[in-house]
Simulated assay, not measured.
Amino acid sequence: MAVICGKSVPEADGKTLSEYILSAGYHAGRIAVEYNGEILPKADHDKTVIASSDDIEIVEFMGGG
């Protein structure tokens, strides 16, 4: 199963990255994704299918002061 933000997430396997991002409640316009050690461009989120061996980090940007 895929590891996302340090946790095993079996339900992510087989989904596109965009599908997972939406289902997990992230705001797609405010995130950066590291996919297997490399930054993944937003243009690739729709065509990247999550596999059981993937290691993914999602960082959500927040405003504040």
Rank of each mutant, 00 (worst) to 15 (best):
D54L: 01
L22M: 11
T16I: 11
S18R: 10
E34L: 13
I58R: 01
L17C: 08
P10L: 06
D54T: 03
V59D: 09
C5F: 03
A2W: 09
R30N: 14
G37F: 04
E11V: 06
G65I: 11
A32Y: 06
E19P: 02
A32I: 15
E34P: 05
G64I: 10
S18G: 02
S52G: 10
S52K: 02
R30V: 11
V33K: 04
I21K: 01
M62Q: 13
E38T: 11
K42F: 14
K7G: 02
D13Q: 15
G63D: 01
I39T: 08
S18T: 15
A28N: 13
L22P: 00
V9D: 10
T48H: 03
E60D: 05
A43G: 14
I50Q: 02
M1W: 13
I50S: 00
G25C: 11
C5D: 15
E60A: 13
E34W: 04
A24I: 08
H27R: 12
K7Q: 13
L17G: 03
K15I: 09
T48M: 03
G63T: 05
V33T: 07
A24G: 07
G29I: 13
I4T: 12
E57V: 10
D54F: 07
D55R: 03
A43P: 00
P10E: 09
M1Y: 15
K15M: 15
G65H: 06
V49E: 09
Y26K: 07
D46P: 00
A43H: 08
E11N: 02
I4S: 10
I39N: 00
K47V: 14
P10R: 01
L22E: 14
E11H: 04
G6F: 13
D55H: 00
S53V: 00
H27G: 08
G29P: 10
E34S: 14
L17R: 01
S8M: 11
D44T: 05
S23K: 07
D54R: 02
C5N: 15
I21E: 00
E11T: 06
G6R: 04
E34G: 09
P41Q: 04
E11A: 04
V59F: 12
H27S: 15
E38K: 08
G25H: 05
A28W: 03
D54W: 06
A51H: 07
G29M: 13
S52M: 00
S52E: 01
K7N: 13
A43R: 12
D13K: 12
I39E: 02
I21N: 02
L40E: 11
G6N: 09
A28K: 15
I56C: 09
D54A: 05
S8F: 06
V59K: 08
I58W: 03
S8N: 09
L40I: 12
E57L: 12
S8E: 15
I56K: 04
T16R: 01
S18H: 05
E38C: 06
G25N: 07
Y26H: 10
G29Y: 12
G65F: 12
G64K: 01
E60K: 05
I21R: 01
